[in-house]
Design a binder for these strands. Structure first.
Lengths: 216, 216
DNA sequence: GAAACATTCTAGCGAATGTTAGAATATCAT
DNA sequence: ATGATATTCTAACATTCGCTAGAATGTTTC
């Protein structure tokens, strides 16, 4: 006979598998990267600044928890998020951490101090201004992530190309740069470069997942 | 000088604190209990079937992650959820686990097989029928949890008192029993008892947190 | 089939975690 | 103050985890 206690233990055991898989900074970072687009082990390891071996090991943990899936493409293994719910969970987790942990609030506040963040208008107003061409929204992530999904009206202008392609941007208009999300600092770097070159640039902390969530 | 990499490491380190605190079945169960109402260490340890010492230790881990708060009331330490966002996160985590883990789906499916679950009508229809008195919604959790928060029109009828108070319930009407949520089996026990006594009883898997979430 | 490449598997180490039991602390009732 | 009660602190142990390095696997290219 199976007792209620044994059933409960099994249920919570299963839920904890997801939480355990999320309980490592590097695995969280890998999940965050996979929210942008499918990637190979090597891409992931480089972007998370860890060895390929360690990345592979973490990815297999995530796979065992069914948070990601993998598929062979020739020599490469392509990892991708198992479901959009995983991205949603990840944002919920990040937002809870930001609400509860003063240490995290402080770190994020310091980021905001040095950066010029886009403020004062709502999401819908930004969308409208981007549509009419009053502001130029640039996506500074690598091109393949832009292709995977991007904010409406945004132009792909990867950070690595930005310096060479500065002349494509109009000096008179406000430039809004965004990247992978609040913990990605590519838009910070982009705005710094743009302002040094005389542009009226600000950054948007949201990534594509956060942006879509606010659509409600 | 602080590099981007160091900043990112710190940010993800902080987020992982929340996930680590959630990465134990027993801590998840304790959080689930605290979603119902504030409780003493002893109550929590009994309901989670662990020793007081172990409960205390887990609760302090949760406190260090700022997910719960404690306050002394005379001899007792009362623990409570630090914020409603924690309950919301917990439900998101449970739902993700249920979506992704076939092992969990299977376990929940087996529960559903033996139980008589409330089906066929929407949340709003149940609410209306409960309001008009066509169905009787009973809350079988301990009374203090009912007092902390409950579904509209529900009557408190703790599982421990149910047998003695059966005569209070009308035989002609449908009885809908609910408890702490999908992983709490008190409503299963209640419905079994009621049906054996000739009542037309079904159970609602939602607890108060899930119910309020669906309000949108 | 051999060489090159991308990834995974295996083994090992130090650090962190879950659990238990005994000592210590804080509060209440007398 | 004293004893009873509730909780936390400390120490100890086995287990698991994060990371590294070397061997092994599967795929492409020649």
């Amino acid at each position: 006979m199976v007792t209620n206690r044994e059933i409960k233990n099994e249920l919570y055991e299963q839920v904890s598998r997801i939480a355990k898989a999320s309980a490592s900074p590097k695995r969280l970072e890998l999940l965050g990267l996979l929210c942008q687009a499918p990637k190979t082990v090597e891409m992931l390891s480089q972007e998370a600044s860890i060895s390929v071996k360690l990345a592979s090991s973490h990815l297999q943990d995530l796979k065992a928890a069914r948070l990601v899936e993998s598929e062979r493409h020739g020599k490469n293994m392509i990892y991708k998020l198992a479901s959009p719910s995983v991205a949603n969970f990840l944002v919920t987790l990040r937002e809870l951490a930001q609400e509860r942990l003063t240490e995290l609030q402080e770190a994020v506040r310091q980021l905001g101090e040095s950066a010029h963040e886009w403020t004062g208008t709502t999401r819908d107003e930004l969308l409208q201004q981007a549509g009419s061409g009053d502001v130029v929204v640039i996506d500074v992530r690598p091109a393949n992530e832009f292709e995977s999904a991007h904010i409406p009206y945004a132009r792909s202008m990867p950070l690595s190309d930005l310096k060479a392609r500065l002349k494509e941007l109009p000096k008179g208009k406000k430039i809004v740069a965004y990247c992978r999300g609040p913990f990605c600092l590519m838009s910070d770097d982009a705005v710094r470069l743009l302002r040094k070159s005389g542009y009226d640039a600000v950054l948007l902390r949201d990534g594509i997942v956060e942006w879509n969530r606010r659509a409600g």
